[in-house]
Design a protein around this nucleic acid. Structure first.
Lengths: 224, 224
DNA sequence: GTCTATATAGCGATAGAC
DNA sequence: GTCTATCGCTATATAGAC
């Protein structure tokens, strides 16, 4: 691969004797970084060991197989990383929904998503690798998280349609359009824009613009 | 990996003696399929050889290294596959632009993109793998194709803003929003929707809905 | 052009001492 | 909990016969 970069920074202290649990999470964190950078097959247990400052045998003492390590990562990330603070528990968003403040609903959702993506680039990369590899994590995350997003935003849209505020469009199409803007934007930031910046906007500006486009796009004209 | 499927279908006749060029393209096509399904590292020259019905040594006669094979694929795909019939040569689209028929411009662009994605799933997967691996193809495709799309649609938007038809938004943000809907939708179709279908619409419906959302979202109200 | 056979290296994983 | 040493396997890549 073109990327010959090394991981130089490690969140956990390297080497030195540590307890089983400490060591286990250290290995986990390093493996997350490595797998998210190079994918599963291109990552080696040897390099994980080297980065952790321990021998390969130690890696296999904590995780019987490389595959088990992968699963542990995915479990860890899917439970802790990906679905922590989901939108449906966000108080600001809940309030906006109660108030039927359409702009606040979509803007806060958008900004939250963009910040979350930026904060957990590793997880996004891991998730895309898993999706391409057709790994079960992908489906797991999808069922546990993405499909709920569709229900969550979709039901708000349906409600606002009943109010006569939003025109008749299939709610799921609207969700896909909105998520498309957000996820595609984050993906661009992660994968390409670092080198050639096609678009240089703050997360707030992006959230504002996307929200405006979507809302004007779906609200009935008289409402605007 | 979870995907244990085999490639059973091959576009090119397997085995039997063939000319150098024939054999070369056969290997290329098989490798494209394999790399796009499993990524670079997880694909083996042995399997390529097996699928082609030849020995591994033959693969290395045509491509000195596995990496060279990868490059050949990317050159081939980037020149022939990805950028064949780009939107800016589409006569229907050109006509719509001349006529300043906003709906036709965005609808035809959208439908063209969705059909193209569906037609060349292998290339999309290859491109995403390459992007994650930070392979140069990714940047190449980006510079040769994506950035031109931004210029192409962006300049149309700018023109319509000068006409007073489209409200003041950064054109590149609008492009990103629209491409986001389209690419994200295709990505969903490819990666997840095959198992759990969140959204079941024809390409025409999707193109229509996305176009309507975008246009209502950016046109000045009086224009609608 | 195609093969068999082989070189070489690195992989995941294990054994056994400390 | 950690190491060194090593196994068995598979990977890429090459040599040389047909």
């Amino acid at each position: 691969m073109a990327n010959e970069n090394e991981i130089t920074e490690t969140a956990v202290a390297v080497g030195s004797r540590m307890s089983g649990d400490e060591r286990r999470s250290q290995i986990l964190l390093i493996a997350i970084k490595l797998f998210s950078q190079k994918g599963f097959s291109a990552s080696t247990t040897k390099e994980i060991a080297r980065l952790a400052g321990i021998s390969e045998a130690m890696v296999f003492r904590h995780f019987a197989t490389k595959s088990e390590l992968y699963h542990a990562i995915l479990d860890y990330k899917a439970c802790e990383g990906g679905t922590k603070n989901p939108p449906w528990t966000n108080p600001v968003l809940k309030r906006a929904i109660e108030d039927k403040d359409d702009y606040a609903v979509f803007y806060n959702f958008a900004l939250g998503a963009l910040l979350h993506h930026k904060e957990d680039v590793d997880f996004m990369r891991l998730l895309f690798y898993a999706a391409l590899d057709e790994h079960e994590l992908s489906q797991m995350f999808f069922d546990q998280f993405v499909s709920r997003i569709y229900d969550f935003i979709g039901s708000y849209i349906r409600q606002r349609q009943a109010d006569g505020a939003i025109r008749e469009v299939e709610p799921r199409v609207v969700v896909r359009a909105f998520l498309g803007m957000l996820i595609h934007h984050s993906l661009n930031n992660i994968l390409w824009d670092k080198k050639r910046r096609l678009l240089d906007v703050t997360d707030e500006e992006a959230a504002k613009n996307f929200t405006e486009i979507l809302l004007k796009g779906v609200l009935k004209e008289k409402q605007q």
